[in-house]
């Protein structure tokens, strides 16, 4: 929350340099033994700094280890070489918000109770406002569905619930593993704007994995491009756009140019 006031006019470069460092990925490699018994190098010497309040997109072809990297940051995969060092160590169950490709909601809980799950299981969250869940549902336009069950919702709505569920307990970082991959294009665009709105309201650090260069360019401050087998960081690009983004942003020549450049790197 360092630059509340000048956020709207911040030049593109400021995004990365201004941020205090949240975590540091140093020399992370991973090897695993495949079913056939061969040793496979999934990640090779990955180095990356993630700043507080930054939005980072990780793109790369299938099997480049980008999901693995995300799960490592989440603490879901602890079997790797190298270090992931946090400026302040994440408190278990409290500082990581994770969104999966599928919503992974609990079907027996209503929308509101799905969102409140992460708050319920923590000891004392009196620091959060009592109408926290309502506020979050309002933020993604689902307040009228608070008492519905997940099966009564569309795919896009469910994924919105999954996103605010991950935000409900106010984690320090939001990690999303191809969160929009299973959605149609129109729903996708809507959820992109949801993410931008959520970021504007919370200034959360967001790291997400995607296949889509447009998605990466539209949402991120920086785009990390990975190469396949073994997964390496090919390059890290600053997105040449300010944080004020909307549908018109996609029409800008600079947007098209940047997306085209990313596409070229993936080919």
């Amino acid at each position: 929350m360092t630059h509340h006031t000048h956020e709207d006019t911040a030049p593109p470069e400021a995004a990365a340099t201004d941020h205090r460092r949240l975590l540091e990925i140093r020399g992370v490699s991973k090897e695993y033994v495949s079913v056939k018994g061969a040793s496979v190098r999934a990640l090779d010497d990955v180095n990356l700094d993630i700043g507080d309040g930054e939005i980072i997109a990780i793109i790369g072809p299938s099997g480049c280890g980008k999901s693995t990297l995300l799960r490592m940051v989440a603490g879901l995969d602890t079997d790797y070489e190298g270090t992931i060092e946090w400026t302040r160590a994440p408190r278990p169950g409290r500082d990581i918000g994770f969104v999966f490709q599928e919503p992974a909601l609990l079907p027996w809980r209503t929308v509101a109770r799905n969102v409140s799950l992460g708050i319920e299981v923590q000891k004392d969250r009196s620091d959060l406002p009592t109408d926290r869940v309502d506020q979050l549902l309002e933020l993604v336009g689902l307040r009228d569905f608070a008492k519905s069950y997940p099966k009564e919702l569309s795919g896009g709505m469910r994924q919105r619930v999954a996103i605010v569920r991950a935000l409900a307990y106010d984690p320090r970082i939001l990690l999303m593993d191809e969160p929009f991959g299973a959605l149609d294009a129109i729903t996708r665009d809507k959820l992109h704007d949801d993410i931008l709105r959520i970021w504007a309201a919370t200034r959360k650090t967001i790291v997400f994995v995607t296949h889509s260069v447009e998605e990466a360019a539209y949402l991120a401050d920086r785009v990390v491009v990975m190469s396949p087998r073994p997964g390496r960081l090919r390059s890290v690009h600053q997105v040449p756009l300010d944080r004020n983004r909307d549908a018109a942003t996609r029409q800008l020549p600079v947007f098209a140019e940047f997306a085209g450049m990313l596409r070229g790197e993936l080919a």
């Binding site: 799960r71 989440a74 603490g75 879901l76 278990p92 169950g93 409290r94 990581i96 918000g97 994770f98 999966f100 599928e102 992974a104 609990l106 799950l117 992460g118 299981v121």
Partner: peptide, 21 residues
């Protein structure tokens, strides 16, 4: 599902809580 198991770990649910919830 694997995702639900991962969610349980992200939320730091112990075995007893994961069973109940």
């Amino acid at each position: 599902t694997d995702d639900q198991r991962a969610l349980g770990r992200v939320l730091n649910l112990g075995p007893a809580r994961f069973f109940r919830l």
